[in-house]
């Protein structure tokens, strides 16, 4: 094989007594330049990946919204946050995510689920242990294995929750001697006033009222109180099958999209009942009309509350 550089006819660099190849400095310069370029490129790639995950998350919310509308066309009412449960308290029953399983192409899971029993009942274990991809936000990270503790009761996590309005639901109301709580959101608890909502109750307009929003496993100071994991970080209370407030029913009464830093001594237990996400700068919501919008975490409290209520009579237009 005849290679020009090793030919006996010397190349220009050989003639001047110079070397073949690169010096260390040249190599370092090239590596440094490549390093800087990669350094510039990497955040852009990561941002593009997060944008794709956020879009997927938006799509999941859209699917859930469609399923709720399918439910509405069948039963002429929006699903309630909690349902079933038989002789137990209704909060031990199932969440609206279980009620709409048949509308989101999970008819077999829907048929397998026994609505006369609680969501933690061993009979329903097979259904509630499923990690359903459309109930999980791809941007969400799980700092712990879910389920892994006694209190998880073998239930798979969720990333979304219905909006019960600008007021919280105190499930112990009758034990406090309080009147039945009024809920002003699009989706309500059966044990509240009113116990069920229909599309005609959304007087503020379906495009101005929140229906389903995001929750996330991002509260390290939220701890287990009992069971084998007592004292460990629980991060979130959300299991898609569990209808408890803070699990699949959230409110705008408290801080919006709270950020919790581990062991900084600042944690409000109400944050569990707030909408929050792992996206940068805000939370995505499905509105009653089926549209999905990203709301900035710096949104004015009055605007958010106006959108959370179904018949508050406020004049609010979402600026996009």
């Amino acid at each position: 094989m005849h290679i020009a550089l090793t030919n006996d006819a010397p190349s220009k660099s050989f003639r001047h007594g110079a070397r073949l190849g690169f010096t260390l400095v040249e190599l370092l310069v090239v590596i440094a330049i490549i390093g800087i370029l990669v350094g510039l490129l990497l955040p852009a790639v990561q941002a593009a990946r997060e944008a794709a995950r956020k879009l997927q998350c938006q799509n999941h919310l859209k699917q859930i919204g469609l399923a709720i509308h399918n439910y509405e066309s069948t039963y002429r009412a929006l699903p309630t946050i909690d349902a079933g449960g038989g002789s137990y308290s209704s909060l031990s029953g199932n969440s609206f995510f279980v009620s709409i399983l048949g509308m989101i192409e999970q008819a077999s899971a829907f048929n397998l689920y026994d609505f006369s029993r609680g969501n933690s009942d061993p009979v329903n274990q097979q259904v509630v242990a499923q990690r359903l991809p459309f109930y999980l936000c791809p941007s969400g990270t799980f700092p712990r294995q879910v389920p892994s503790c006694d209190a998880d009761n073998g239930r798979a996590p969720g990333s979304y929750a219905g909006c019960i309005g600008s007021l919280d639901f105190n499930q112990y109301w009758s034990f406090y001697g309080l009147p039945r709580p009024q809920l002003n959101g699009a989706l309500v608890y059966t044990d509240s006033q009113p116990g069920r909502t229909r599309l005609r109750d959304i007087l503020d307009g379906t495009s101005n009222t929140l229906m389903v929003g995001e929750t996330a496993y991002n509260l390290p100071d939220y701890k287990f109180r009992s069971g084998n994991c007592a004292g460990q970080s629980r991060y979130s209370f959300t299991y898609w099958s569990n209808p408890y407030p803070g699990s699949t029913g959230c409110t705008t009464q408290y801080a919006f999209n709270p950020k919790d830093r581990a062991d900084d001594g600042i944690f409000d237990s109400n944050w569990v009942r707030s909408f929050r996400s792992d996206h940068v700068g805000g939370v995505q919501f499905n509105f009653v009309d089926g549209s999905v919008h990203f709301l900035s975490e710096n949104i004015d409290a009055g605007v958010l509350d106006a959108m959370a209520t179904r018949a508050g009579g406020e004049v609010v237009t979402l600026e996009l």
Binding site: S92, Y172, F175, L178, N242, Y244, P245
Partner: peptide, 23 residues
């Protein structure tokens, strides 16, 4: 606590109708 899923069963078993709470 608000996230206690066994509370209602405990209250029923103890036949307790009121919780002493600061209102």
């Amino acid at each position: 606590p608000m996230d206690d899923e066994e509370a209602f069963e405990r209250l029923r078993a103890a036949n307790q109708r009121r919780i002493a709470a600061i209102r």
